[in-house]
């Protein structure tokens, strides 16, 4: 082999192998989903995503994800505020604890919530088989996004501006509303977006506590799962396409917000 060709082959070998691995695991399978979703034409695709059970599942998923993103944005901000501004013995442990939902397998998270807020709840609170159970599971798995997105921005906030506002007569609420919120708004929005995107596709933590009752507590990922189990793969693929598009849309939106405002990403 001439030397030039050999050198070129060596240079392309790495990227070639990487792209092959990525194609086998990610690109080809996802292309198969797209192709299967439209395998019987756009009419069949539309029918699969517009049948009542699919619409109910998608609607429930979106509503729950929106609600959880909103609730966790507020409580995530409160928690981040405490982690940045407060100090008490054990606050470091609390800070590390925020990442527990990341590290905990989703099925364990689901079982965890079921054990405390299920039929055998020691508090007598049973949300199993209700939309409240779904909200609880989604709140659990998305909390780290909400906290970790605003925390670094809060830490960098210029306290002098806050003090100046307070000196000029602004009330504590006024300082938060006029000084703090505007500077953390992009990070808050990004955190809510990440939480939403995660919630939309969530399965493991929801499946045990929701009970998967059709039209009542069946989320989109559960519906896709039950379609795939009953062998209706192209309908499952059609709903999957919708779900992936929603998540991608939100993630691209977050990217744009971050670029526009130069939000530092959290660690």
């Amino acid at each position: 082999m001439p030397r030039r060709i050999r050198r070129m082959a060596a240079r392309l070998a790495g990227p070639g192998l990487a792209v092959t691995y990525l194609s086998l695991l990610v690109l080809l399978p996802l292309a198969a989903v797209l192709s299967s979703a439209f395998s019987s034409g756009p009419g069949a695709f539309w029918q699969a995503v517009s049948q009542p059970e699919a619409v109910a599942a998608l609607r429930l998923t979106l509503l729950c994800s929106l609600a959880v993103a909103a609730v966790n944005s507020v409580l995530g901000l409160v928690i981040a505020w405490m982690l940045v501004r407060d100090d008490f013995p054990g606050i470091k442990v609390v800070g590390a604890l925020i990442d527990l939902p990341f590290a905990l397998p989703t099925i364990v998270a689901g079982l965890t919530l079921l054990s405390l807020y299920g039929p055998n709840s020691p508090f007598g609170v049973n949300v199993a088989g209700t939309p409240a159970g779904i909200l609880l599971a989604l709140a659990f798995v998305t909390l780290p996004f909400a906290v970790r997105s605003v925390q670094p921005v809060l830490a960098e906030l210029d306290r002098e501006t806050e003090e100046a506002a307070a000196t000029l007569g602004a009330s504590p609420a006024g300082v938060v509303r006029r000084v703090v919120l505007p500077s953390i708004a992009p990070a808050l929005l990004a955190g809510a977006g990440l939480a939403f995107a995660r919630a939309v596709g969530e399965f493991g933590s929801v499946v045990l506590i929701s009970g998967n009752l059709p039209f009542h507590t069946e989320v989109a990922s559960s519906w896709i799962y039950s379609l795939s189990q009953s062998g209706d793969l192209s309908a499952a693929a059609a709903v999957s396409v919708v779900l992936v598009l929603i998540a991608l849309f939100v993630l691209v939106g977050i990217g744009l917000v971050r670029r526009r405002f130069g939000v530092a990403e959290s660690v």
Partner: peptide, 11 residues
């Protein structure tokens, strides 16, 4: 960005 269930279905 993809739900784990969709990853499984894709495979």
């Amino acid at each position: 960005a993809v739900s784990p269930v969709v990853v499984g279905l894709a495979l």
